[in-house]
């Protein structure tokens, strides 16, 4: 499980100040999500596409990530064209396909892909912890930042624990079936994971206290905005605002 597979590359996109990345992604996402013009949404794709190319991310892996999002979008295509009111384009028996439905489904597809590509290009190219730091620099409440960070740090450990337990079950001949016994075994597994995670969190706190933790996190690296951070940040925001105004 590698959640930071895009973060290790080297390009100016990777090196952007994480605060710029968060702010640009956030503003861009809101603007694109609220946009109802297909042309503008299509044009919005230019910015994430440009950043993706500059970040030199593996095209295949990006497509893989997009595929996950587009599975959800696929469901929209299954229902929306048939359910929106409006002019009928085509009918199959009792089902009718409406122009408005197709338009909506297409708009949503463009929007979601544009936002995801932006997140991949900017947020995906930073280590999660850099983003966490940036969040605390952007006045996100400490508790939220710590929650986010500890979730990320220990999800690997819990994932390993899950695999250990589930392998141990397999080694003893467990084959999941659709019956009560299987559900019970899985509920034990989940329950055990919860208890173990809880105990681990206690041990982590103990270890932190042993190293002088008194409830406050100190930040080791401070960021400095460089000239190109300002340049990229402001031009991306300008592009985004243009999208909003141009419609």
């Amino acid at each position: 499980m590698d959640m930071e597979e895009f973060a290790s590359g080297k390009s100016w996109v990777h090196n952007l100040d994480p605060r710029v990345k968060i702010v640009v992604t956030l503003v861009f996402s809101v603007v694109v999500a609220l946009n109802n013009h297909i042309e503008m949404t299509a044009i919005s794709l230019i910015l994430p596409a440009f950043l993706l190319v500059c970040a030199r991310l593996d095209f295949g892996k990006v497509t893989e990530r997009l595929a996950i999002v587009n599975t959800f979008v696929l469901f929209l295509w299954l229902f929306l064209p048939f359910s929106a009111p409006g002019e009928t384009v085509y009918s199959i028996g009792p089902l009718t396909i409406q122009r408005e439905g197709i338009y909506q489904a297409f708009l949503i597809t463009l929007k979601s892909n544009s936002i995801i590509l932006m997140a991949l290009a900017l947020l995906g190219t930073s280590q999660i912890f850099t983003l966490v730091h940036a969040m605390s620099h952007l006045w996100v409440p400490d508790k939220l930042v710590h929650l986010f960070f500890f979730c990320f740090r220990y999800i690997h450990v819990i994932n390993d624990e899950y695999h250990r337990l589930s392998n141990a079950m397999k080694m003893r001949g467990f084959k999941p079936k659709t019956n009560i016994r299987t559900y019970r075994a899985y509920s034990y597994l989940v329950g055990m994971l919860l208890i173990r995670s809880f105990n681990r969190s206690k041990r982590i706190l103990q270890a932190m206290r042993c190293r002088g933790f008194k409830g406050k996190f100190y930040i080791l690296h401070h960021y400095e905005m460089k000239r190109y951070d300002y340049a990229v940040g402001s031009s991306s925001l300008a592009f985004t605002i243009l999208l909003m105004v141009a419609k």
Partner: peptide, 25 residues
């Protein structure tokens, strides 16, 4: 105090931050 399980002790993402945690505190 060195804990039995290193995963309990190392909670920062990078080594430098983890080692600096105590001194900063």
């Amino acid at each position: 105090f060195l804990f039995q399980d290193s995963d309990d002790q190392l909670f920062c993402p990078t080594v430098i931050e983890d080692v600096a945690f105590g001194p900063l505190n």
